[in-house]
Design a protein around this nucleic acid. Structure first.
Lengths: 217, 217
DNA sequence: GTCTATATGTCGATAGAC
DNA sequence: GTCTATCGACATATAGAC
């Protein structure tokens, strides 16, 4: 949350503020009001669901009135879609990086697992929305989201198939192996929320051992 | 859905009807209105979410008025809780059967995978609610649901630990192996919905190979 | 058991003052 | 950029006729 005693003074000095105070404090990130609303909404959407979270709920958590949110977002739907499409883009970009890394299929799968772990740790609330809240996206966002998700899954599957062709992976049903890996990666936010003290690097290695150990040749 | 041309005639002959027509037809199961409402609600809750599904939506799918539903359920919440608690009880009972089967830990895990596959195929819509819609349960149902879910996970974990002690399973982090298996099993409904033609027995074997192959010693 | 009518509340979003 | 005030739509649930 924004540190009010400072932030309220700077409300009308938005551009100056970035010159006067550092972008990161040692304890809390100084965020714009819009970013703060996004983070609040992600947390509430995750906890209660999109439909059960009212603009008044989000506003109360931000200590403002509901009408004020409309100066930053044109609708509640826009808050949800900005959160989900941002995460989808991060995964899409990550996949591109992995595919152009030159690693072999097993190495690419390792990188993808690390990608999921890191995004999960860094954006736990927003990533939780991927599991179920995307159904509340309206057009045209829904179509765009689905397109990115389907592309991601197709490229993931391609890597699995290449690994099988090169004899690096066991001869499992690719469909089911893919679904199994993605399920675990998608639910990771849930496990991590109850184990936030688990070291990130150890989690990456354990996930790689668990998910990849079972399918490597 | 109920076959209306027959069912409407028998509306006031409820007890007689069970004598006059068979309980199961060769094509569609003849269900009570209450069961039909449950199935409709499960499908809509899954598709749009609990909060976004109105009593009018459910009623329209049943070709009755919203007020009529209150003759079968005392609230919308009761529809949700009856669906979720029924599934939780089926898993709890299944776990009891597995634990008293006398099989070794690996055999018990196999049985649990078969349990998930079968319940997923038989109650696809209701089981989908386990993934996310349980957050809309209100007390005291929420507490009861959580208690059953936590017990199930604890007993699952116990079997994994026994397997490790007996040298039947690899030395993975039990927490993460458990979470990984449960994730795949919980998301199975999603995969199955897009692959309904996949034979149940083949799916069971593939799931066992994928989930157990990676952790067996 | 289903209907019509309605009580009662909350929601998303907008208008306009400051 | 935030506020107060408010509109119109739709939600759950109930009362009572048939």
């Amino acid at each position: 949350m924004i540190r009010w005693e400072i932030a309220s003074i700077l409300l009308n000095l938005d551009r100056l503020s970035s010159l006067l105070i550092p972008q990161r404090s040692s304890i809390t990130m100084v965020r714009s009001r819009k970013e703060s609303i996004s983070a609040c909404a992600a947390r509430l959407f995750r906890k209660r669901g999109y439909q059960a979270t009212s603009m008044r709920d989000i506003a109360e958590a931000e200590s403002i009135k509901a009408a004020s949110i409309y100066n930053h977002f044109k609708s509640k739907q826009e808050i949800l879609s900005s959160l989900l499409l941002r995460m989808a883009r991060l995964f899409t970009q990550g996949m591109q990086t992995v595919k152009t890394s030159g690693a072999d299929p097993v190495g690419q799968l390792e990188q993808l697992i690390r990608l999921h772990v890191r995004l999960t740790i860094e954006h736990t609330d927003a990533i939780a929305l991927i599991a179920g809240e995307w159904i509340h996206l309206e057009e045209p966002h829904l179509q765009e989201y689905r397109r990115m998700r389907d592309s991601y899954e197709a490229e993931f599957k391609e890597i699995l198939n290449e690994g099988k062709q090169q004899g690096l992976l066991r001869d499992l049903a690719t469909d089911i192996a893919l679904f199994s890996m993605l399920s675990s990666l998608r639910w990771l936010y849930s496990w991590y929320s109850r184990n936030r003290d688990y070291p990130a690097e150890k989690l990456e290695e354990e996930m790689i051992a668990t998910l990849l150990g079972g399918i490597k040749a």
